[in-house]
Design a binder for these strands. Structure first.
Length: 258
DNA sequence: ATGGCAATGTTTCATTGA
Protein backbone atom coordinates (compact mmCIF):
# COMPACT_ATOMS: atom_id res chain seq x y z
CA UNK A 1 0.00 0.00 0.00
CA UNK A 2 1.41 3.37 -1.05
CA UNK A 3 0.41 6.63 0.63
CA UNK A 4 1.58 9.99 -0.69
CA UNK A 5 1.36 13.68 0.17
CA UNK A 6 1.57 16.67 -2.14
CA UNK A 7 1.05 20.39 -1.64
CA UNK A 8 -0.27 21.26 -5.10
CA UNK A 9 -0.55 25.07 -4.66
CA UNK A 10 -3.99 25.28 -6.34
CA UNK A 11 -5.72 22.12 -7.52
CA UNK A 12 -7.41 24.17 -10.23
CA UNK A 13 -4.04 24.92 -11.85
CA UNK A 14 -2.45 21.60 -10.96
CA UNK A 15 -5.25 19.11 -11.78
CA UNK A 16 -3.55 18.00 -15.03
CA UNK A 17 -0.31 17.41 -13.07
CA UNK A 18 -2.17 15.39 -10.42
CA UNK A 19 -3.98 13.22 -13.00
CA UNK A 20 -0.74 12.62 -14.88
CA UNK A 21 1.13 11.83 -11.67
CA UNK A 22 -1.54 9.37 -10.49
CA UNK A 23 -1.47 7.61 -13.86
CA UNK A 24 2.26 7.05 -13.39
CA UNK A 25 2.09 6.55 -9.60
CA UNK A 26 -1.11 4.65 -8.82
CA UNK A 27 -0.85 5.10 -5.06
CA UNK A 28 -3.69 3.90 -2.84
CA UNK A 29 -3.98 7.24 -1.03
CA UNK A 30 -2.90 10.77 -2.01
CA UNK A 31 -3.19 13.58 0.55
CA UNK A 32 -3.39 17.04 -1.02
CA UNK A 33 -2.81 20.46 0.53
CA UNK A 34 -3.49 23.99 -0.71
CA UNK A 35 -6.30 22.99 -3.04
CA UNK A 36 -7.51 26.63 -2.85
CA UNK A 37 -10.99 25.57 -3.97
CA UNK A 38 -14.45 25.91 -2.49
CA UNK A 39 -16.19 22.53 -2.29
CA UNK A 40 -18.52 23.31 -5.21
CA UNK A 41 -15.47 23.70 -7.47
CA UNK A 42 -13.73 20.46 -6.46
CA UNK A 43 -12.95 18.28 -9.52
CA UNK A 44 -14.72 15.16 -8.21
CA UNK A 45 -15.69 13.82 -11.63
CA UNK A 46 -12.25 14.14 -13.19
CA UNK A 47 -10.66 12.29 -10.27
CA UNK A 48 -13.33 9.58 -10.32
CA UNK A 49 -12.68 9.05 -14.01
CA UNK A 50 -9.03 8.53 -13.03
CA UNK A 51 -10.08 5.86 -10.51
CA UNK A 52 -10.04 7.89 -7.30
CA UNK A 53 -12.64 8.85 -4.74
CA UNK A 54 -12.12 12.21 -3.06
CA UNK A 55 -12.91 13.46 0.43
CA UNK A 56 -12.25 17.17 0.71
CA UNK A 57 -12.82 20.45 2.47
CA UNK A 58 -11.83 23.80 1.10
CA UNK A 59 -12.31 27.53 1.01
CA UNK A 60 -11.72 30.35 -1.43
CA UNK A 61 -8.13 31.45 -2.22
CA UNK A 62 -6.28 29.79 0.65
CA UNK A 63 -5.72 26.41 2.30
CA UNK A 64 -7.98 23.47 1.50
CA UNK A 65 -7.13 19.76 1.90
CA UNK A 66 -8.25 16.49 0.33
CA UNK A 67 -7.75 12.74 0.61
CA UNK A 68 -7.89 10.77 -2.62
CA UNK A 69 -8.24 7.00 -2.41
CA UNK A 70 -8.64 4.29 -5.02
CA UNK A 71 -12.28 3.59 -5.83
CA UNK A 72 -11.75 -0.06 -4.84
CA UNK A 73 -10.42 1.07 -1.43
CA UNK A 74 -13.07 3.35 0.08
CA UNK A 75 -12.29 5.99 2.71
CA UNK A 76 -14.51 5.74 5.77
CA UNK A 77 -15.07 7.76 8.95
CA UNK A 78 -14.08 11.05 7.37
CA UNK A 79 -13.38 13.80 9.92
CA UNK A 80 -12.87 17.46 8.99
CA UNK A 81 -10.65 19.83 11.04
CA UNK A 82 -9.11 19.22 14.49
CA UNK A 83 -12.14 18.39 16.66
CA UNK A 84 -12.62 20.96 19.41
CA UNK A 85 -10.21 23.49 17.88
CA UNK A 86 -12.03 26.50 16.46
CA UNK A 87 -10.37 27.33 13.13
CA UNK A 88 -11.94 28.88 10.06
CA UNK A 89 -8.99 27.77 7.94
CA UNK A 90 -9.44 24.41 6.24
CA UNK A 91 -6.25 22.54 7.07
CA UNK A 92 -7.06 18.99 8.23
CA UNK A 93 -8.97 16.01 6.86
CA UNK A 94 -8.82 12.42 8.14
CA UNK A 95 -10.19 9.08 7.01
CA UNK A 96 -9.62 5.35 7.40
CA UNK A 97 -8.42 3.46 4.31
CA UNK A 98 -7.61 -0.26 4.35
CA UNK A 99 -7.39 -0.24 8.15
CA UNK A 100 -4.97 2.71 8.22
CA UNK A 101 -6.03 5.98 9.82
CA UNK A 102 -4.77 8.75 7.53
CA UNK A 103 -4.53 12.34 8.75
CA UNK A 104 -3.77 14.99 6.09
CA UNK A 105 -2.42 18.24 7.53
CA UNK A 106 -1.57 21.66 6.14
CA UNK A 107 0.27 23.37 8.99
CA UNK A 108 0.16 27.19 8.95
CA UNK A 109 3.10 28.90 7.30
CA UNK A 110 3.73 31.41 10.08
CA UNK A 111 4.94 34.23 7.79
CA UNK A 112 7.63 35.57 10.16
CA UNK A 113 8.61 34.79 13.74
CA UNK A 114 7.33 38.12 15.09
CA UNK A 115 3.89 37.90 13.47
CA UNK A 116 0.42 36.96 14.70
CA UNK A 117 0.49 34.22 12.06
CA UNK A 118 3.50 32.68 13.78
CA UNK A 119 1.71 32.66 17.14
CA UNK A 120 -1.29 31.06 15.40
CA UNK A 121 1.06 28.44 13.93
CA UNK A 122 2.39 27.47 17.37
CA UNK A 123 -1.12 27.38 18.89
CA UNK A 124 -2.25 25.27 15.94
CA UNK A 125 0.65 22.84 16.49
CA UNK A 126 -0.33 22.53 20.16
CA UNK A 127 -3.93 21.69 19.21
CA UNK A 128 -2.70 19.13 16.66
CA UNK A 129 -0.43 17.59 19.28
CA UNK A 130 -3.16 17.28 21.90
CA UNK A 131 -5.60 15.75 19.43
CA UNK A 132 -3.02 13.30 18.00
CA UNK A 133 -2.12 12.14 21.51
CA UNK A 134 -5.62 10.65 21.63
CA UNK A 135 -5.80 9.58 17.96
CA UNK A 136 -2.68 7.43 18.22
CA UNK A 137 -4.30 5.46 21.04
CA UNK A 138 -7.58 5.06 19.14
CA UNK A 139 -5.79 4.17 15.88
CA UNK A 140 -2.54 2.20 16.30
CA UNK A 141 -2.04 2.20 12.52
CA UNK A 142 -1.78 5.96 12.15
CA UNK A 143 -0.11 8.07 9.46
CA UNK A 144 -0.03 11.87 9.75
CA UNK A 145 1.25 13.40 6.56
CA UNK A 146 1.30 16.69 4.77
CA UNK A 147 2.94 20.10 4.59
CA UNK A 148 4.29 20.73 8.10
CA UNK A 149 6.00 23.99 7.16
CA UNK A 150 8.93 23.04 9.41
CA UNK A 151 12.34 21.68 8.46
CA UNK A 152 13.34 19.42 11.39
CA UNK A 153 17.14 19.36 11.11
CA UNK A 154 20.13 21.14 9.58
CA UNK A 155 20.35 18.47 6.88
CA UNK A 156 16.81 19.37 5.79
CA UNK A 157 17.85 22.94 4.90
CA UNK A 158 20.06 24.02 1.99
CA UNK A 159 21.66 26.79 4.08
CA UNK A 160 21.00 26.17 7.78
CA UNK A 161 23.06 29.17 8.89
CA UNK A 162 21.01 31.57 6.77
CA UNK A 163 17.74 29.96 7.92
CA UNK A 164 18.63 29.77 11.62
CA UNK A 165 15.86 31.39 13.65
CA UNK A 166 13.78 32.16 10.55
CA UNK A 167 10.22 30.98 10.10
CA UNK A 168 10.11 27.29 9.02
CA UNK A 169 13.38 26.68 10.92
CA UNK A 170 13.03 28.45 14.28
CA UNK A 171 13.60 26.59 17.56
CA UNK A 172 9.93 26.76 18.74
CA UNK A 173 8.72 25.32 15.43
CA UNK A 174 11.27 22.52 15.53
CA UNK A 175 10.25 21.82 19.15
CA UNK A 176 6.58 21.69 18.13
CA UNK A 177 7.32 19.14 15.41
CA UNK A 178 9.50 17.13 17.78
CA UNK A 179 6.70 17.06 20.37
CA UNK A 180 4.48 15.40 17.77
CA UNK A 181 7.23 12.94 16.87
CA UNK A 182 7.61 12.19 20.58
CA UNK A 183 4.02 10.90 20.65
CA UNK A 184 5.45 7.92 18.77
CA UNK A 185 5.27 9.22 15.20
CA UNK A 186 8.35 8.52 13.11
CA UNK A 187 9.62 10.46 10.09
CA UNK A 188 9.26 7.80 7.37
CA UNK A 189 11.83 9.52 5.14
CA UNK A 190 14.55 9.08 7.74
CA UNK A 191 13.86 5.36 8.21
CA UNK A 192 15.89 4.84 5.03
CA UNK A 193 19.18 5.93 3.56
CA UNK A 194 18.63 9.06 1.48
CA UNK A 195 20.68 11.22 -0.82
CA UNK A 196 22.22 14.27 0.88
CA UNK A 197 20.49 17.58 0.20
CA UNK A 198 17.06 16.00 -0.23
CA UNK A 199 14.31 18.61 -0.09
CA UNK A 200 10.57 18.75 -0.78
CA UNK A 201 10.09 22.47 -1.47
CA UNK A 202 12.02 25.01 -3.51
CA UNK A 203 11.33 28.73 -3.84
CA UNK A 204 9.96 29.75 -7.22
CA UNK A 205 12.29 32.74 -7.03
CA UNK A 206 16.05 33.04 -7.50
CA UNK A 207 16.31 29.77 -9.43
CA UNK A 208 15.59 27.90 -6.20
CA UNK A 209 15.15 24.50 -7.81
CA UNK A 210 18.02 24.78 -10.26
CA UNK A 211 20.32 25.67 -7.36
CA UNK A 212 18.66 23.00 -5.16
CA UNK A 213 18.08 25.79 -2.63
CA UNK A 214 15.30 23.92 -0.87
CA UNK A 215 13.82 22.79 2.42
CA UNK A 216 12.36 19.46 3.51
CA UNK A 217 9.07 20.55 5.05
CA UNK A 218 6.64 17.90 3.74
CA UNK A 219 6.62 14.86 5.98
CA UNK A 220 5.05 11.42 6.42
CA UNK A 221 4.92 10.56 10.13
CA UNK A 222 4.04 6.98 11.01
CA UNK A 223 3.10 5.16 14.21
CA UNK A 224 5.12 2.20 15.57
CA UNK A 225 2.82 -0.34 13.91
CA UNK A 226 3.25 1.30 10.51
CA UNK A 227 6.97 1.90 11.01
CA UNK A 228 7.34 -1.86 11.33
CA UNK A 229 5.84 -2.40 7.86
CA UNK A 230 7.17 0.70 6.11
CA UNK A 231 9.52 -0.45 3.34
CA UNK A 232 10.31 2.78 1.44
CA UNK A 233 9.89 6.55 1.44
CA UNK A 234 10.99 8.92 -1.29
CA UNK A 235 10.56 12.43 -2.64
CA UNK A 236 9.57 12.69 -6.31
CA UNK A 237 11.74 15.66 -7.22
CA UNK A 238 11.27 14.93 -10.94
CA UNK A 239 7.78 16.40 -10.63
CA UNK A 240 9.31 19.79 -9.76
CA UNK A 241 11.04 19.87 -13.18
CA UNK A 242 7.79 19.88 -15.11
CA UNK A 243 6.15 22.83 -16.81
CA UNK A 244 4.23 25.09 -14.36
CA UNK A 245 5.03 22.91 -11.33
CA UNK A 246 3.89 23.23 -7.74
CA UNK A 247 6.70 24.56 -5.56
CA UNK A 248 6.40 21.32 -3.52
CA UNK A 249 7.25 17.79 -4.67
CA UNK A 250 5.21 14.69 -3.79
CA UNK A 251 6.46 12.41 -0.98
CA UNK A 252 5.55 8.71 -1.20
CA UNK A 253 5.70 6.04 1.52
CA UNK A 254 5.27 2.30 0.94
CA UNK A 255 3.77 -0.09 3.50
CA UNK A 256 3.82 -3.88 3.31
CA UNK A 257 0.24 -4.45 4.36
CA UNK A 258 -2.11 -7.25 3.39
C1' DA B 1 18.73 45.74 2.88
C1' DT B 2 15.83 44.25 -0.97
C1' DG B 3 13.62 41.58 -4.44
C1' DG B 4 13.05 37.77 -6.83
C1' DC B 5 8.03 33.87 -8.48
C1' DA B 6 3.29 32.10 -8.54
C1' DA B 7 -1.76 32.07 -7.54
C1' DT B 8 -5.88 34.51 -6.24
C1' DG B 9 -9.60 38.00 -6.59
C1' DT B 10 -15.93 42.19 -6.49
C1' DT B 11 -8.01 42.15 -9.87
C1' DT B 12 -5.18 45.77 -13.23
C1' DC B 13 -2.23 45.67 -7.63
C1' DA B 14 -2.35 43.89 -2.88
C1' DT B 15 -1.91 39.82 -0.32
C1' DT B 16 -0.08 35.45 0.82
C1' DG B 17 2.91 31.80 0.56
C1' DA B 18 7.64 29.60 2.23
Amino acid sequence: MKIATWNVNSLKIRLPHVLDWLARNPVEVLALQETKLTDDKFPTKELEAAGYHASFVGQKTYNGVALLSRLAMPATDVVIDIPGFADEQKRVISATVNGVRVVCVYVPNGQSVDSDKYRYKLAWFQALHDWLSREIVAHPKLVVLGDYNVAPEDRDVHDPKAWEGQVLFSAPEKAALKAIADLGLHDAFRLFEQAPKSYSWWDYRMLGFRRNAGLRIDHVLVSDALKAVCSACSIDREERKKEQPSDHAPVVATFDLA
